[in-house]
Design a protein around this nucleic acid. Structure first.
Length: 570
RNA sequence: CGGAGUGUAGCGCAGCCUGGCUAGCGCACCUGUUUUGGGUACAGGUGGUCGGGGGUUCGAAUCCCUCCACUCCGACCA
C-alpha cells in the first residue's frame, strides 16, 4: 500500500488525557480516536493491527477444534433473568428498552446466549464435547474507563464456551485451551505468563489468567525465582516461615502509648520494626453467635480479603467491624486492639503465629503490650493464610522465593462447571437415555486490549515497535527525493512490486515529504523493517536496510538485497 | 457515588482574578516561494454558537445562577 492511499493520522503532540504510553502512542500513531468516554474508533492503521490479532486467534482456535459463531450484542432480559444475573450484575450491565418497552441489555459476555443456543441445538452426548467461539464486541459500562482501549467500555473480545458430559472432558478441553493460548500469545511475539487466578464472580474451579508483563499493568503477579510457579497475588498462597517459632526471651509488659494508633506510629514510638508487631483487625462474622471475628497479621503484612472471605467464620463480603462493635468486643479504640485476652474467635495469619517477643495492642485505649509470646501469654486459635504474599516469601511449591511483577490481563480461562447449564437447564441424553446437565468451560481473550498490551511491551522513545506477526505492515519503503529522481522512483517501485508479489505487506511512502517527516512517521507507526532508497545508495549499487530495533542501518548490495530481506522476514 | 479540576479554532494553550478596541498564540491545514538523508525557512491565508441556558450590566470569554460534558484521585468491578 502507498501512503497516499492510507490515512496517516500521526500527530506530534500527545493529548493531555492519555496517561499510559500505549494510549499516547495509539493516538499519536493514528491507530485510534476517542469518540466518547471509553468508546474508540479504530482508524485504518489500527484496524490492520486488530485484524492481525484476530487472525492469529481465529487460526489457533480453529486448529484447536473450536467452531466460530457470531452472537448478538443486544440480548433479551429474559435470559439474564433465567441465569439470575439480571439482578446480580450491577450498573456495569447496560440495560436498554426497545420500542415495546421490553428489556434488553448490551452483552458484557455471552454465557447466557451460548447456553441457550446449546440447550436448543445439542441433544445427545454423542455431539460432545463441543467448543464454540466468537470474536465480538462487548459492552461493560465501566465506572471509570481509562488507559484508552486498555479499559474501555466497548471492546472486542474472543470468547469461547465448551460443553461436556463430565468433568474429565472439561478438564481435557481446558488443557487444550491452555496450550492454545500459549500458542496464540507466542505467535504474537509477546512476553507473557499464565498465572493461577481467582475465579471471581463467575464462579467455578480451575482458572488461569494470561498476563502480558508490563510495569504499567493493573495486576500484581507473584512468581517463583526458581520454578514456573506464577499466580495472581490475590491467590498466591503465603506459606508459614521456615523453622520453629523462637522461644520467648522477654517478659510481657504493658506500656503507655498515648495517641499511637497505626503500625508506623507504634514502631516509631517503641523503636521496633513493623515485623516485630502484630496488628489485629475486627471484621463481621458469618453467624449471629459470632458477630465479630478478629484477624491477626504481622505489622508489615497486608490483609487479603479474598482469602479471608473463604473462611467460614467470616462474613462474605469482608466487612470491618463498626466502632461500636470494637468498643463492645475489645473495650478500646481500634488502634489498641490485640489478640491477648479477646473472647471472640481469633484467626491468626501463619506469619503472625510464628512471631515471638512481639508488640501488640493491649485492648486498653492508649496502651500496647511488648514482649508478648504465643502459648505463654495467649493461644493462637485458628492459624490460616489471610495475607498477601510479599517479595521474598518462600514460593508455595517449595522452590525459590516470591518475586512480584505487574501484568496486563489479556486472557482468562475458566472451568465454569454447571453454573449456567443448570440455571438454563442445558442438558443432553447420556448413554443411559437420562438427561444430564452439561459441564461448561469458558475462555476469553481481550482482543483490543492485546493491541494496547503489545505496545506497552514494545516501544521506545520514537514510537511503537510492532512484533512482525501483528504489524500493520512488515516493511516500509522510504524513498529519498523520489519526486525529483526517476531513478529512485523506479528502484523503489521495483522493490515494492517484488515484495508485494511475494505476499509481503509493504507500506511505500510516496508522499512528497521531507525525509525527516517520513522517518519519524514510520518509526512512530512502528513498521518493523525499513528500506531506504536514495541517489546516494544507488550510485554505489546499495540499498539501505534497518530494523526498527536496530541502532544503525546497513547498506546491502542490490544483487543480494532481496534474499537478505526475505531472510529477515522469515 | 465522594473529593478535585477542566471546558476558548482539528490538537495544545493564553486571556477570566481587576467586565471595555476587531478574542489571541503555537502546532496542524490551504496558497506561493524556498528547502530536500531526520519534523526547513519566509510570506500570505482558512478556520471560533469562548460547553448550553438564564441572569446582572450601557457593555460578559471575564461576574452570578443553573444544566451538560470530560479528566484526575478514591470507592466499585473483570
Amino acid at each position: 500500500m502507498k501512503t497516499s492511499q492510507l490515512l496517516i493520522a500521526t500527530t506530534r503532540e500527545t493529548p493531555t488525557d492519555a496517561e499510559v504510553i500505549s494510549h499516547q502512542l495509539m493516538l499519536r500513531a493514528g491507530l485510534i480516536r476517542r469518540l466518547a468516554g471509553g468508546l474508540y474508533t479504530w482508524l485504518p492503521l489500527g484496524l490492520k493491527v486488530l485484524r492481525k490479532v484476530e487472525g492469529i486467534i481465529r487460526q489457533e482456535m480453529d486448529r484447536a477444534g473450536a467452531q466460530e459463531v457470531l452472537m448478538p450484542v443486544v440480548q433479551p432480559a429474559e435470559l439474564w433473568e433465567e441465569s439470575g444475573r439480571w439482578q446480580q450484575y450491577g450498573a456495569e450491565l447496560l440495560r436498554i428498552k426497545d420500542r415495546h418497552q421490553r428489556d434488553f441489555c448490551l452483552g458484557p459476555t455471552h454465557e447466557e446466549v451460548i447456553t441457550d443456543m446449546v440447550r436448543k441445538e445439542i441433544r445427545s452426548y454423542k455431539q460432545l464435547p463441543i467448543n464454540f467461539y466468537q470474536i465480538q464486541t462487548k459492552f461493560r459500562d465501566e465506572i471509570r474507563p481509562r488507559f484508552g482501549v486498555m479499559r474501555s467500555r466497548e471492546f472486542i473480545m474472543k470468547d469461547a464456551y465448551s460443553f461436556h458430559l463430565d468433568r474429565a472432558s472439561l478438564e481435557a478441553t481446558y488443557q487444550v485451551m491452555y496450550d492454545t493460548y500459549h500458542r496464540i500469545f507466542e505467535r504474537m511475539g509477546l512476553n507473557f505468563r499464565a498465572v493461577q487466578a481467582d475465579t471471581g464472580s463467575i464462579g467455578g474451579d480451575g482458572s488461569h489468567e494470561f498476563h502480558v508483563l508490563a510495569d504499567s499493568g493493573e495486576d500484581a503477579i507473584a512468581f517463583s525465582t526458581e520454578s514456573d510457579f506464577a499466580a495472581n497475588v490475590e491467590l498466591a498462597e503465603a506459606m508459614a516461615p521456615a523453622g520453629e517459632r523462637a522461644a520467648p526471651s522477654q517478659a510481657m509488659s504493658e506500656v503507655a502509648t498515648p495517641n499511637v494508633h497505626s503500625i508506623d506510629e507504634v514502631c516509631a514510638f517503641l523503636k521496633v520494626e513493623p515485623s516485630q508487631t502484630l496488628k489485629t483487625l475486627l471484621v463481621q462474622g458469618a453467624s449471629k453467635e459470632q458477630p465479630v471475628v478478629a484477624l491477626v497479621l504481622r505489622g508489615d503484612h497486608e490483609i487479603n480479603d479474598i482469602k479471608v472471605e473463604k473462611l467460614a467464620m467470616v462474613a462474605n463480603p469482608m466487612t470491618f467491624a463498626t466502632a461500636e462493635q470494637v468498643q463492645a468486643v475489645a473495650n478500646c479504640d481500634a488502634g489498641s486492639i490485640g489478640p491477648i485476652g479477646l473472647t471472640i474467635p481469633v484467626i491468626v495469619d501463619r506469619a503472625a503465629a510464628h512471631c515471638s517477643d512481639f508488640v501488640c495492642g493491649a485492648n486498653k485505649t492508649g496502651f500496647h503490650l511488648t514482649g508478648v509470646n504465643w502459648v505463654r501469654d495467649g493461644q493462637t486459635g485458628l492459624v490460616a493464610d489471610i495475607r498477601n504474599v510479599v517479595e521474598g516469601d518462600p514460593s508455595p511449591d517449595g522452590k525459590g522465593t516470591i518475586l512480584i511483577r505487574r501484568g496486563i490481563e489479556v486472557g482468562h480461562i475458566f472451568q465454569l462447571g454447571d453454573k449456567y447449564s443448570k440455571a438454563l437447564n442445558a442438558n443432553v441424553l447420556n448413554e443411559n437415555s437420562r438427561a444430564q446437565i452439561l459441564e461448561m468451560g469458558c475462555y476469553g481473550i481481550g482482543v483490543t486490549r492485546v493491541v494496547a498490551a503489545a505496545i506497552e511491551q514494545n516501544h521506545d522513545e520514537k514510537g511503537i515497535i510492532w512484533p512482525d506477526a501483528i504489524a500493520p505492515f512488515q516493511v516500509c519503503i522510504v524513498p529519498m527525493q523520489m519526486h525529483k529522481s526517476p531513478r529512485v522512483k523506479d528502484a523503489a517501485e521495483q522493490i515494492y512490486q517484488a515484495l508485494t508479489a511475494q505476499g509481503i505487506e509493504v507500506l511505500f511512502d510516496d508522499r512528497n515529504e521531507r525525509p525527516g517527516v517520513m522517518f519519524n512517521d514510520m518509526e512512530l507507526m512502528g513498521i518493523p523493517h525499513r528500506i531506504v532508497i536514495g541517489e546516494r545508495g544507488l550510485d554505489e549499487g546499495k540499498i539501505e536496510y534497518k530494523h526498527r530495533r536496530d541502532k544503525d542501518s546497513q547498506n546491502m548490495d542490490q544483487a543480494v538485497f532481496m534474499d537478505f530481506l526475505l531472510q529477515q522476514l522469515s
